[in-house]
Amino acid sequence: MTSLPDLNQKIQSAAKRLLAEGKAEVVIGCRQGTTPMTVAPIFCRTEDDCNQLIWSNFAKINLATYLPKYPGKVAIIAKGCDARSAVGQVVEKQIERENLYIVGVACGGLVDVEQIQAREPRPIRAAEEDWATIKLSGDGWSSSLPKEDVLRRNCKTCVSRTPEGVADELIGEPTEALPADDYADLKALAGQSLEEKMAYFKGLVKNCLRCYACRNACPLCYCPVCFVDETRPQWLGKSQDEMDTFTFHLLRAFHCSGRCTSCGGCEAACPMDIKLREFNRLLDEEVQKDWNYLPGLSWDQTPPLTTYRPDDEADFIK
């Protein structure tokens, strides 16, 4: 297994090479954040910029979100979900394939800072990381956590940790795909009473501020005018009405159906720690079951809501 410093070295040289060869005018990647356990996006145009590039267990942003903002030749340092989202943006004509260069990086899954903080309540001043362990330290203490114990939920069921097949080059040894989400919890919930289902889903979003950070973090949300901002007709009331909020989440998930790569960017961005992906998972399950579709795995995919089969499921129709 390539060590993290080696991996970072390789990423940096790849980025420099791409800039030097003119294959990219900008390389999008991550750099260390200013506080522990955070990363920030970096848009590298110089060697110096490139020297800051890292891979991190804390790189919770989906870098593909930035792609449509760069019209020229762009390279992206992409873990599996970033790469899939980038492919999706090509399929959805937001970026052009020939302007995109994917530097795929094998990903071992990301960690969830909330879970770390739950296990280590002392103020964390610094964090060191490698493939398997997160070493934490504070004022006069240090401890370490196995990464497996604090993996993000979406990373535990990642079927595309290594962006094989779509990456223009690959750094690091491919990591094996994990068993896909079996939706066991949702299946169990489906058997519960209506009240319980309602309570669960309405409960999820009861603290929602409608700040739309989830939307802004999502690589799929590139519409010039989002339906929440529409006025004629006004799809959603502007007030904090519970049903308006609920509708927002239902429609957000609906718009992402067949397109979401389960990167978890929305949840990571949410200031209220809402498990937003629960809504997406409801539809992902159907999309996979009925149309056997996983977005972002190839350049010539047809998104399921742009096509049909005459024998599509119809049991719900009288």
Binding site: E92, Q94, P224, L305, T307
Partner: peptide
């Protein structure tokens, strides 16, 4: 003003 050019309508 609202079109992102994603091509769903075309498809």
């Amino acid at each position: 003003a609202k079109c992102s050019g994603c091509g769903v309508c075309v498809a």
